[in-house]
Simulated scan of single mutants.
Amino acid sequence: MDLALLRTFVTVHRAGSFTRAAALLGLSQPAVTGQIRTLERQLGRPLFLRQARGVTPTTIGDELAHRAAPHLDALIEIAETGLDSESSGVRTLHLAGPPEFTSLRALPALAPLTAQGLALRTSFFGKNEETLEGLAAGHHDLAIATARPRGGLLTATALCDEEHVLIAAPRWAARLGHNVLRDGHVVLEQLPVVEVHESLPLVSRYWAAVFDSRPASSGTVIVPDLRAVLECAAAGAGLAVVPRYLCAGALERGEVVALLDPPVPPLRTYFLVVRTGTLGLPPIARAHEWLLRAAVDW
């Protein structure tokens, strides 16, 4: 069986689409379609059911993917190991995840491993789907995700929970009084909102958990980086919802204040995700274990 065809098959299986697989492989969609048809002819069985949006693997396709994917990943690792040993002996780990958490949590935790011969290459993604698609296609070795992936080709381990805090500059908090925060919509009517996206993902999640409602306002400042969101809120641009680890220092310094202290604060879980079978590879296993140890204190 041609390994190039097998690699294309595994990529399509992980991506769920010929179009996405073609982009991940750097091929045209007709080339990917042709390779899958060639493999299906060789096996004498259909591997995917074509649908209006993407493809769904047949039972034979699922079985082949589960049997072949770990071995294909191992072959890629062997090839990369050979390249590393011919140069400096440094092993490279490709890490992907959200920019803020990866920058402030994961990378500092992994920094000591560089003294043990591990090199790090990092990719930032704002959308969870982009992170997991890149991991499935083999562009990354280890990913930090905000949702557990479906299916058996990716394996996820819960890493830690992040608490979300509703914050604003002290001058805005002083205007609200003591009883204004009983209803979420009242806050949004009185304060502008700083968020990472027009859909207000963090504010909406907070409102649903704390007020059992949806925010009625739109964002005043939209900036796709939580660190910038925090700086804008501290400068008085409006209220924001940010992770506690990100705003803890600003809270201690009085640059922002927490507008609420709910009995059960909204949480978001982070997951460490690998391609199934790759935790047996030393660089990935070491980084995976290192992050889990560090997360105990997060």
Rank of each mutant, 00 (worst) to 15 (best):
L159T: 07
G152C: 00
G177P: 03
R150M: 11
H185M: 12
R148H: 13
A168R: 00
A143G: 03
H164Y: 14
G152L: 07
T155K: 01
H139Q: 15
L188T: 13
T155D: 01
A169E: 11
R182M: 03
A137V: 08
R148P: 09
E189P: 00
E133Q: 11
R182A: 05
D141R: 08
A173I: 06
H178E: 12
V193M: 07
L191T: 10
L191V: 10
I144D: 02
L188E: 13
H140E: 04
A173T: 09
V193H: 03
E189Q: 14
A136R: 05
P192A: 10
A169H: 12
A137R: 06
L154R: 09
C160L: 14
L166M: 11
D183V: 12
D141N: 13
A174I: 08
E163T: 14
E162G: 09
H185L: 14
G134C: 10
V186P: 03
H178I: 04
A143V: 00
G134I: 03
R175W: 00
Q190L: 15
A174P: 07
T155A: 09
L166K: 07
T146W: 09
N179E: 09
Q190V: 10
A137L: 10
H178K: 09
A145S: 12
A145K: 02
A145D: 01
P149T: 11
I144N: 00
H140P: 04
V193R: 02
G152D: 11
R171E: 15
L176W: 08
A137S: 12
L153E: 02
A156G: 05
V180S: 08
E133M: 08
L153P: 02
L154E: 07
P192Y: 08
N179H: 12
L153I: 00
T157R: 13
I167M: 05
D183Q: 15
I144L: 15
H185A: 15
H178L: 06
L135A: 02
A168N: 01
D183M: 09
L132G: 06
D183H: 15
A158M: 10
D183P: 01
